[in-house]
Design a protein around this nucleic acid. Structure first.
Length: 318
DNA sequence: AGAAACGCGCGTCAAAATGG
DNA sequence: CCATTTTGACGCGCGTTTCT
């Protein structure tokens, strides 16, 4: 489980931290209106530079980010202790651990739920921004409708008007984009995001099929590659199979190629998903840290208030 | 200066969670 | 129920810091 990983350690403030007011990550209290009866508002400067309003010392409990993981941590600890065997101290293999440990909800879900409850908590967007994951030279041009990557690493962008722009993925002073205009312009199918298939044709040309009815054909020779848009039915060479119709696969080699293609696609998707997941995780941890900082400040104020009340009580009894 | 330790991000796999 | 997405776990490489 993720909070067992050595890499993720929320710094626990030491005795020194709380006594000196330095919360390890420089949380500063800007000011407090401590009028009795009215809710006091305290400005807390978080390590990230974000300012948080802490309302009143005594207040209704806020929804806590830490809640559900904490509960599960307790459960895990109980299980480990109840076992009492060598399994609990590291001998246990990962598979068994996975069986024992329950899974917690996703970061996206937690953060999004929290964002609807607590103002100021950033909501995780459903989709990445357009420029993320696209080559810089493509991002700079007229907003494309679809971007495809060829097997050679080149990018093809199809714009609204049917114009096609091709660029090399390499960043070493990449040559300018070549622009082509489709003979039968039309909006590409919505939702299509990746090239379906790429292959070296028998005539030495490279062909990659974009979703829809067009085939982009790249000539193999020449310094400046040339591209053509053709109808797939007239140009489909032997050995090139549209991925959209797997039913037409027959030979073991074709099946193997299809399997490889699917696997590569899956790996690519998972690679991106893992990156996203890590990004969300970091955001989640940041959020937890902020929450900890706020609670530390609240706790400190509560203690101070308690001391003040104690003083008042003791002075009255004297 | 070189070795060891540490932290971090990445890619991959597998399993859980989720959506249709 | 199945396909897809999400995420924990693992191993690896690389850069930085600490130790000798």
């Amino acid at each position: 489980m993720w909070w067992h990983q050595h890499n993720l350690c929320l710094r626990r403030p030491t005795e020194e931290d709380s006594s000196s007011g330095d919360l390890g990550k420089k949380v500063s209290v800007a000011g407090s209106g401590t009028g009795r009866g009215s809710p006091a508002v305290t400005l807390v400067q978080l390590p990230s530079g974000q300012t948080v309003h802490v309302q009143g010392v005594i207040q209704t409990p806020q929804p806590s980010l830490i809640q559900s993981p904490q509960i599960q941590t307790v459960q895990v600890a109980t299980i480990a202790e109840a076992d009492g065997s060598a399994e609990s101290d590291g001998v246990i293999d990962s598979h068994k651990r996975r069986e024992i440990l329950s899974r917690r909800p996703s970061y996206r879900k937690i953060l999004n739920e929290l964002s609807s409850d607590v103002p100021g908590v950033p909501k995780i967007e459903e989709e990445k921004s357009e420029e993320e994951g696209t080559p810089p030279n493509i991002a700079a041009m007229a907003v494309p409708t679809s971007i495809y990557q060829t097997s050679t690493g080149q990018y093809i962008a199809i714009a609204q008007g049917g114009a096609i722009q091709i660029s090399n993925a390499g960043s070493d002073g990449a040559p300018g984009l070549q622009a082509l205009t489709m003979t039968n312009p039309g909006a590409p199918p919505p939702g299509a995001t990746i090239v379906q298939y790429a292959a070296q044709a028998a005539d030495g040309t490279q062909r990659f099929f974009v979703p829809g009815s067009q085939v982009v054909v790249q000539a193999a020779t020449g310094d400046m590659p040339t591209y053509q848009i053709r109808a797939p039915t007239t140009t489909l060479p032997q050995g090139v199979v549209m991925a959209a119709s797997p039913g037409s696969l027959h030979s073991p080699q074709q099946l193997a190629e299809e399997a490889t293609r699917k696997r590569e696609l899956r790996l690519m998707k998972n690679r991106e998903a893992a990156k996203e997941c890590r990004r969300r995780k970091k955001e989640y941890v940041k959020c937890l840290e902020s929450r900890v900082a706020v609670l530390e400040v609240q706790n400190k104020k509560l203690i101070e208030e308690l001391e003040t009340l104690k003083d008042i009580c003791s002075s009255k009894t004297d």
